[in-house]
Design a protein around this nucleic acid. Structure first.
Lengths: 96, 96
DNA sequence: AGTTAATATAAGCATATGCTAATATGCCTG
DNA sequence: CAGGCATATTAGCATATGCTTATATTAACT
């Protein structure tokens, strides 16, 4: 399938999990460390790291190390662009 | 997790599969029967029916029987509302 | 260098997902 | 009502996903 389809598939998979959706929602309110996210979603640290890896692979989050902590934040540009593409598709549909 | 989260999770899972995404894209261009969709995504009929069931459960498509055929089309209202919710979340994020 | 804190990675396992093959259901037509 | 389509459902299986536990990495501090 196409590259866009691939992108959307990753986007969907990222969104298609309650924990990851919660993480994105949290990060939309401001960047957070892995520990902070761990407390929010109430999962083990490795589980959170794994979810963050999935989100990063989907291009939805960005990580930035500060000393021993790693801050995660949403990749707004990419998120915007995905939403824009989706909206475009939906809005230009033929009426039935 | 919340009902919205649940809704988004289903939305994500629905989108998070190349075939289902292709099906939605096709349906956005007009309603189609299961057979037509089968030819488009090049999967077996049962596989397509199963994907359609997933999409229906997520509220993304509507089915309508006409004789022995069943026409599927996108549930525009729900799709709009989901996209609107997502966009709202993304747009009201705090700048960092 | 040794220790501790924060995070990442790996291995293992249970459950979920996505297919196929087989069968059931619903609708039309003779 | 028998036969044939179109679609749905079921069972079974292979692979993917999401966790846990254990271990590795990276950075700060002494």
């Amino acid at each position: 399938m196409s590259a866009l389809c691939d992108e959307m598939e990753k986007f969907g998979k990222a969104l298609g999990n309650a924990c990851r959706y919660t993480i994105i929602q949290s990060l939309l309110r401001g960047r957070k460390t892995v520990s902070e996210l761990k407390d929010i979603v109430k999962l083990s640290q490795p589980a959170v790291s794994q979810h963050l890896k999935t989100l990063k692979t989907a291009g939805l989050v960005i990580d930035e190390r500060r000393g021993q902590e790693v801050f995660y934040s949403v990749n707004s540009e990419h998120l915007f662009s995905l939403l824009a593409k989706l909206s475009k598709d939906v809005n230009r549909r033929k009426k039935q």
